[in-house]
Design a protein around this nucleic acid. Structure first.
Lengths: 209, 209
DNA sequence: GGATAAAATTTCCAATAGGAAATAAAGTTA
DNA sequence: TAACTTTATTTCCTATTGGAAATTTTATCC
C-alpha cells in the first residue's frame, strides 16, 4: 500500500478552501518515530509487543509504514511505551547543543522600574530560552498597590534573597517568606508578592511556560 | 515572622496538593472531541466531509465511537478542519487553575550529599513541574573531583547565593562567579561548578527540559 | 398534524488493519 | 562456515475500518 499511505491530504480539500486552511502538516512519519522510541529504549519488537499488547507483526508493519495504525492502537503504544501520544508523530525538537551561555554579573542586568517592583531581567543575551529569570526589588506593600491579581500561563519559582516578603495568592492564605525561603506555584493562580520588611526585599524568580 | 510562622507553614507544605500526583491520563474520547470541534464550527457532517475528504458515514461513526480512525484519517481530519492533530484527543485545556503551590522554608528540603555537592531539592511536593529548583552547597574544588562533564537535556539557570564559584564549561573559559552573579546555559553542554572561596559556596539552580 | 427538506445514522460491501505463524535476516558460538 | 539463537519481516487469514447508498431522525414550513 505504501503510496496510498502517504497521505494525500490536500488534493480535494485544498481546492475547496482558501489557502489559509492548508496547514503546514509537516510530513509526519509515525513509523520512524515509533522505531526511534523503541530502539532508544533498547526494546525488541517482542518486548514492545509484550508491553503494548500488540502483535510483533503489527509493530513491524507500523514501523515500516505498511499500515496506518488506528487510534486505539496508538493509545496502546503510548500507554505501553510510557510516552505521551503526540510523541508518536512529533519530531523531538532538533537538539542543537549549541552550548549557549549567558552570564549576568551582579547588577548588570537591564532594569525596569514600576511602582510595585524594580525588575531586573537576567540572561538577556540568551534568546528563546525555556525559563525567564528575574531579580526584583519589591516596593509594593499591599494588594492595593496592584489593584488586581497577577496571573499568567506557566509556573513560577520564587526565592527570597533579602528581606521578607508576603506571597498573596488567590487560593491560599498569605504566606510570609524570609531570606532563603522559596515557593513554586502555578502562575495561572492569581499571585502577588509584597514587601513586609524594614529594608527593601529582593527576590529571585524564574518562570517557565 | 520567623519561628512562629515557620511552624505553621510546615504543614501547608506537606499538604501542598496531592491531587496533582495523579498523572492525567484521562480517558480520551476522540469521538466527542471531533463532534465538539465540528459543531463549534457550525459544520454539518456533509460540510465536514467535503473539507476532510472523508465520507459522512465515516465521520458519523467516529463521532459515535463506532470505529477507531486510522492515523491517516486523523491527519485528514486535522488538515481539513484546520486544527492541530493532538486537539482531536486533548481536552481543550480545561484551564484548571488548580493553584498548585509548594513552599520550602530555608533548609527544610531533602538533602542529598555527594563528594562534590550537597543538593537540596526544593518544592518536592509539587510533582510534574516544568522546572526543578535546587539549592546546593558546593564541595568540589576541581574538575578532577567529578572526573567528567555533567551533561543533560534542557537548560539551566544558576545563581550564586554565597561564596564564590567557578563555572567550568565544555566550550568556554572558566568563569568566576560571586554572590549575586548568575548564568543561564544550555545543559547539553558539559558543565561543572566548583567552589573557589574560603567558605563553602552555596548556589541556587533551576533546570527545565 | 402531515408533508417536505435537511441532517445524522445505519446498512452493506470493498478495502485495509491487526494477529498467528511461517519465513527471512542478523547476530552468536563453536 | 555451519549450526544455532535471536530479532525482524512477510504471508495468510480474520476482524475492523471507510465509503456509497439506503434508512432513520430531526428540523421547517404549511
Amino acid at each position: 500500500m505504501s503510496e496510498q499511505n502517504k497521505v494525500d491530504i490536500y488534493p480535494s480539500m485544498v481546492v475547496a478552501d482558501s489557502q489559509e486552511n492548508v496547514r503546514a502538516v509537516e510530513k509526519v512519519t509515525i513509523g520512524a518515530q515509533l522505531k526511534a522510541i523503541r530502539t532508544n529504549n533498547k526494546l525488541t519488537l517482542e518486548e514492545a509487543s509484550k508491553r503494548t499488547g500488540l502483535a510483533r507483526s503489527t509493530l513491524s508493519k507500523i514501523e515500516n509504514e505498511q499500515i496506518s495504525p488506528t487510534f486505539t492502537v496508538m493509545q496502546k503504544l503510548a500507554a505501553g511505551l510510557n510516552i505521551e501520544l503526540p510523541q508518536l508523530f512529533t519530531k523531538p525538537k532538533a537538539r542543537q547543543a549549541t552550548g549557549r551561555r549567558d552570564i549576568t554579573l551582579k547588577s548588570t542586568g537591564k532594569s525596569h522600574v514600576t511602582s510595585t517592583y524594580e525588575h531586573e531581567l537576567l540572561a538577556t543575551q540568551f534568546r528563546n530560552k525555556k525559563m525567564m529569570p528575574y531579580k526584583s526589588r519589591v516596593y509594593a506593600r499591599s494588594f492595593e498597590d496592584f489593584g488586581e491579581w497577577v496571573r499568567h500561563e506557566g509556573e513560577e519559582f520564587l526565592l527570597v534573597l533579602e528581606g521578607e516578603v508576603q506571597l498573596l495568592t488567590e487560593f491560599y492564605e498569605p504566606m510570609t517568606l524570609s531570606k532563603g525561603d522559596n515557593v513554586y506555584y502555578d502562575a495561572t493562580m492569581g499571585h502577588l508578592v509584597i514587601s513586609v520588611s524594614e529594608e527593601d526585599a529582593v527576590i529571585l524568580w524564574v518562570t517557565a511556560d
